[in-house]
């Protein structure tokens, strides 16, 4: 039997799940689990390292990406279910950045 590849979704509101398996590549089928243990098979799009995320629903550009039931960023591209989600298609929503950004914000 092939080793179980888990994608964990910790909050019902989340539209991403985190992969806890090695060798997850484009086309790998992973099993998404929620906190109650409900499961769903999802086909991964892209090569996803251990501890990285996939979308568990289609996410449109500009939409909120949710993990832990809270927003962790905005989709900067169209994201389809199963697709690798990381800094290439997710942008932080935090206005408050480092000192330089803050200074710029203050002068506006």
């Amino acid at each position: 039997m092939e080793e179980l590849k888990i994608a964990l979704k910790v909050n019902d509101l989340d539209n991403v799940a985190t992969i806890f398996a090695n060798d997850v590549t484009d086309g790998t089928v992973v099993e998404m689990r929620d906190k109650k243990g409900n499961r769903e098979q999802i086909t991964v799009k892209g090569d996803v390292p251990y501890g990285h995320k996939i979308a568990v629903a289609d996410i449109h550009i500009g939409e909120q990406i949710t993990k832990y039931g809270e927003e962790i960023g905005i989709a900067t591209k169209e994201i389809v279910k199963g697709e690798y989600v990381h800094v290439h298609n997710l942008d932080s929503m935090r206005g408050r950045g480092d000192w330089e950004t803050e200074k710029e914000a203050e002068t506006v």
């Binding site: 985190t18 501890g51 960023g73 990381h86 997710l90 929503m93 935090r94």
Partner: peptide
């Protein structure tokens, strides 16, 4: 390690 934003890191 898979963290995409400061929000995600903090929320963890």
């Amino acid at each position: 390690g898979g963290l995409s934003s400061i929000e995600e890191k903090s929320l963890g």
